[in-house]
Computed example of a mutant assay.
Amino acid sequence: MKEQFLNKLIFQDRILASLLLAGMGDALGAPTEQWTIEEIFKKYGGLVLDFDIPPEDTFAGANAGKRGEVTDDASQMYYLARAMIAADGALDQADWVACLLDWASNSPKASFMGPSTAGIVKALQEGSDTALVGVIGTSRRKMTSVGTTNGAAMRVAPAGLIYPGNIDAACRQALITCLPSHDTNVAISAACSVAAAVSQALVSNNLHDVINGAIEGAHIGEQLASEHARIVAGPQYIARLEMALSIAAEATNDYSFLTRMERMVGNSVLAAESVPAALGVVAYSKGDALRTIALSASIGNDTDSIATMAGSIVGALVGTEKLPQNLIQEFKQANKADFDLDKLALALAAIAGRNHG
């Protein structure tokens, strides 16, 4: 009983740290989204280390985003956490669709919605066939870009948070949150990789274990996709992940690391680019919480999504004491009207403790 109680306390702290660092990364990357690495380094004199007001040439700025606020990335993650709590850790497809529609209708961040999610939400709201979204001509084949973005991976962390150390279960829960919007092998492999890394981080103090968990999750995701989704042409997640990890291992300074990652792996909204880049940042930052989100916010292009994913993994590994304390209060203040992360962490920890026990 005492060990179970201690596990719950540890899980609660690490879950809270995951939610916090993901959100802080999202907010840190919002003002630099779509910028180049060169533009970011010129404005900030190096890595982005503090919150800023998103300018008008970013999605957050164009939608009146404020300093320290999350975007659609962490917002969807927090809505998913709420839905998992409401389902007592047994989220099914109907629960997830209801959660997605709730977010789309009620979250002020839904105006940032990504392309894969937007098409499916529109079909669900209209009651039309989601299988026809992105279909080419009269065939059942879809445009390759449909369902291959990073929307599922950016929100998926709660699937790992409720299954500490159980990578297979985390991946199966992640699969549910991929459908119907991200029904491809690339998106599912990427989402399972993030969920698996988060799951492993909750029960480990070793970054190497977490990276191995991400690799294992990617392979499980590929298998799940072969059974439940579409196999698409183009770059594959696992191949890009291997490349990202090699770049992280070889890098000698921050600027060369970021530019090589951009040029060789990519940093766009595509799951085969931004998700491996996020894992590359996790490996390169060596578990340092502030550097994780600072590097992610400085990598250019889809900075907020990359920072959300990388932050969720490293937060789960290091716990709240190792988070950038100077950013926490401002972040909580900026988002308190929408989310109570302490309350979410407490409820998720209860489910995690039960699943781990």
Rank of each mutant, 00 (worst) to 15 (best):
residue 228 H to F: 10
residue 329 Q to A: 13
residue 149 T to F: 04
residue 347 A to C: 03
residue 245 L to K: 12
residue 267 N to I: 11
residue 57 D to C: 06
residue 146 V to A: 10
residue 102 D to N: 11
residue 111 S to G: 00
residue 134 G to N: 12
residue 168 D to L: 11
residue 245 L to G: 11
residue 164 P to Y: 06
residue 49 L to C: 01
residue 113 M to Y: 01
residue 344 L to R: 00
residue 76 Q to E: 13
residue 341 L to I: 10
residue 276 P to K: 05
residue 106 N to G: 07
residue 91 L to K: 14
residue 228 H to C: 12
residue 212 N to H: 13
residue 179 L to S: 03
residue 153 A to K: 03
residue 70 V to N: 07
residue 79 Y to K: 04
residue 267 N to E: 02
residue 208 H to D: 12
residue 238 I to S: 15
residue 120 I to V: 14
residue 127 G to Q: 08
residue 330 E to R: 13
residue 287 G to E: 08
residue 56 E to K: 12
residue 48 V to D: 03
residue 334 A to R: 14
residue 221 G to K: 05
residue 283 A to D: 09
residue 206 N to L: 08
residue 152 A to K: 04
residue 93 Q to N: 15
residue 49 L to I: 02
residue 154 M to P: 04
residue 160 G to E: 09
residue 116 S to Q: 02
residue 37 I to T: 10
residue 119 G to S: 11
residue 29 G to F: 00
residue 169 A to F: 08
residue 234 G to H: 09
residue 184 T to C: 13
residue 67 R to I: 08
residue 168 D to C: 02
residue 96 W to S: 14
residue 140 R to T: 12
residue 86 A to V: 12
residue 278 A to M: 04
residue 58 T to S: 01
residue 188 I to Y: 12
residue 299 I to R: 05
residue 160 G to Y: 06
residue 30 A to N: 09
residue 173 Q to I: 13
residue 184 T to I: 12
residue 251 A to N: 04
residue 73 D to G: 08
residue 12 Q to P: 07
residue 51 F to S: 06
residue 305 S to P: 12
residue 229 A to L: 05
residue 139 S to T: 15
residue 270 L to V: 04
residue 188 I to A: 13
residue 201 A to P: 07
residue 30 A to S: 13
residue 186 V to E: 14
residue 351 I to C: 10
residue 125 Q to D: 05
residue 176 I to S: 07
residue 260 R to T: 14
